[in-house]
Design a protein around this nucleic acid. Structure first.
Length: 281
DNA sequence: AAGTATCTCAACCGCTAGATG
DNA sequence: TCATCTAGCGGTTGAGATACT
């Protein structure tokens, strides 16, 4: 498209940030706030790409970041969220205040994957790995048994990045992460956003997950009023709405306050359709 | 102590959605 | 409507740290 590069690469530093660069970036953002990342480097006197500045700030310098080890509770929450959302690291990160998507992504790849495999669970599908079939696990092949930790949270087979992103779009009906047996598989077999295993590993899987627009944050307003009022099907209107936090046990049984805290009204909180009797996903 | 293997995680790259003119 | 720009996302890489021989 003839698009110009995001920065003049010939005149930008790359690699690890120095303390001085960090200080410059922090000072600038403290003075001016987060804003136009493209123009920030020049304004702040940094020989860095705006993208790089943004990343450095978001992943490392932000004052509200929580450094240090993840707790077991964090682990379990991440696992559950991953089962629900796939590799939507930014969405997962928003449920863990002080953690970044990059940090969670790294933690997943270095710790949780191994932890799940040691439990005999395929980290991509969240289903038990059949005995001795680590290769199957790696390729996303699964058994049909329920997951060990959360049988109702079988993973959604990898919505293509942004194609089914509940934050960005309000589909005409459910944001169904499930795919039928006739759904097209992903173009490649390796891990991509949302997961690597678009093979029909769960042909009858129907998560029927209706994540509302505020999925991104417990109480964040919807992106647009139009989207917020996107017409739910009558089918939906009959569903009891349950906050995702509540469903996941985040609030430990409490009714999530995000329902009331949202300025956008009752449509602004996330809900899952409870499974009907005999239904499994 | 030295060399090698493995692990961790900060940073980069390429891509897309949404905004704008 | 189209072209372009920007912010943001997810996958990947590689330097440094650590463990092992």
């Amino acid at each position: 498209m003839g698009r110009s590069p995001c920065c003049e690469k010939a005149h930008t530093n790359k690699g690890a940030w120095t303390k001085e660069e960090d200080q410059r970036l922090i000072a600038y953002i403290k003075a001016h706030g987060e804003g136009c990342w493209r123009s920030l480097p020049k304004a702040a006197g940094l020989l860095r790409c705006g993208k790089s500045c943004r990343l450095r700030w978001m992943n490392y310098l932000r004052p509200d970041l929580k450094r240090g080890n993840f707790t077991d509770e964090d682990d379990e929450l991440i696992i559950k969220l991953h089962a629900l959302l796939g590799n939507k690291w930014s969405l997962i990160a928003r449920q863990l205040p002080g953690r970044t998507d990059n940090e969670i992504k790294n933690y997943w790849n270095t710790h949780i994957k191994r932890k799940l495999l040691s439990r005999g669970i395929d980290p991509q599908t969240h289903r038990p790995v059949s005995a001795g079939s680590s290769a199957a696990a790696a390729s996303g092949l699964t058994t049909t048994a329920s997951t060990a930790g959360f049988p109702s949270l079988a993973p959604s087979p990898a919505p293509a990045s942004r194609l089914h992103n509940p934050v960005h779009t309000a589909p005409p009906s459910n944001v169904s992460f499930a795919r039928t047996a006739t759904s097209a598989p992903s173009e490649d077999g390796h891990s991509s956003s949302g997961g690597s295993t678009d093979a029909p590993r769960c042909p009858d899987l129907n998560l029927d997950l209706d994540l509302d627009l505020s999925m991104s944050l417990p109480c964040s307003p919807p992106k647009t009023p139009a989207a917020a009022s996107s017409t739910p099907t009558s089918h939906h209107q009959q569903q009891q709405t349950i906050c995702l936090c509540y469903h996941l046990g985040v609030r430990n049984g409490e009714v999530c306050s995000c329902k009331t805290a949202s300025p956008a009204g009752p449509r602004a909180f996330r809900f899952l359709r409870p499974l009907e009797e005999g239904q499994y996903i």
